[in-house]
């Protein structure tokens, strides 16, 4: 059978069998059915991703990874394959590669349907991974800063004690200098840990409807930027107008706001705590 052969009727029947076993949570039966389908038609990516989904339910991440890699080879634009491959990599603590796969899945998913459940799911997983990554790195940074600070404080104290014993006059001046230096040190270290301290995300990086940091920002002809999935929802349910300016607005007028998207990425790069949602 040639590599571009369409799925045979028999293989399709096996896939449907697999799907109904999966729906009933009969995972081994589902895996057997998909495996047979793969044997008949190894070039159909969906057979591989469906089987990967079964492995995922069983927490068999090595097999998830294998099946998804195969599916990605067959179809570079498979959202599910990139998504589950990303999850499998994160399981192996391959953060950078896992995150890259999830981002790929997110881009592909948004291209297909920005409001689909899978886009939301991928985003949640991506945010979780990024947040954990930040938590890990920032704990390390804050521990390093703390020990550096303690070292500086004791060095200052040593210097102060030495001066104090050497000079008997001007004691007040020495004490003055010392407490100023301690204050200065405190300030320097406070500034150094600012980026890792969770505060508020600036308003200009947040959607006026969700009040949350942008994920997929789009701009209207009025110049206002909104979260894509939410403004689409508004146009459908509330009315075809810009929620802030109330000027008429239609779906085709929405344009991605790439500048804001980059600004959000730059912000998140520096302040990983902002990945924590809700």
């Amino acid at each position: 059978m040639g590599p571009t052969a369409p799925p045979t009727k028999q293989a399709e029947q096996l896939r449907q069998d697999g799907n109904s076993y999966f729906a009933k949570n009969k995972l081994s039966a589902a895996i057997d059915a998909y495996t047979e389908a793969i044997t008949l038609c190894p070039n159909v990516p969906i057979y591989w991703t469906n089987r990967a989904l079964c492995h995922r339910k069983r927490n068999d991440w090595i097999r998830v990874e294998e099946d998804c890699r195969r599916a990605v080879q067959l179809d570079h634009s498979s959202v599910k394959a990139h998504y589950m491959l990303g999850l499998a990599l994160l399981q192996r603590e391959q953060y950078a590669d896992g995150v890259k796969e999830l981002e790929k899945a997110l881009d592909l998913g948004r291209g297909a349907n920005p409001k689909s459940y899978i886009v939301e799911e991928v985003w949640q997983e991506l945010a979780k991974a990024r947040y954990l990554e930040w938590e890990h790195a920032s704990t390390k940074r804050s521990w390093e800063l703390q020990s550096l600070k303690e070292a500086c404080q004791s060095a200052l104290k040593e210097k102060h004690d030495r001066k104090y014993s050497e000079m008997e006059g001007f004691v007040d001046d020495i004490n003055d200098d010392y407490s100023k230096q301690l204050d200065g040190l405190e300030q320097v270290f406070a500034i150094a840990s600012e980026a890792d301290t969770p505060t508020e995300v600036p308003d200009y990086l947040c959607c006026k409807i969700t009040l949350d940091i942008f994920r997929d920002p789009v701009i209207t002809p009025s110049g206002v930027t909104y979260e894509r999935s939410v403004i689409l929802d508004h146009l459908k349910k509330v009315g075809e107008f810009d929620p802030i300016t109330r000027k008429p607005l239609h779906q085709h007028q929405l344009v991605p706001n790439l500048a804001v998207k980059e600004a959000v990425q730059a912000f998140l790069q520096k302040h990983g705590w902002a990945y924590k949602m809700g």
Partner: peptide, 14 residues
């Protein structure tokens, strides 16, 4: 809904 709860949390905080 999740979106509603999320947004109300933010409004309450603000």
């Amino acid at each position: 809904s999740k979106i509603a709860a999320n947004r109300l949390q933010k409004e309450l905080l603000e």
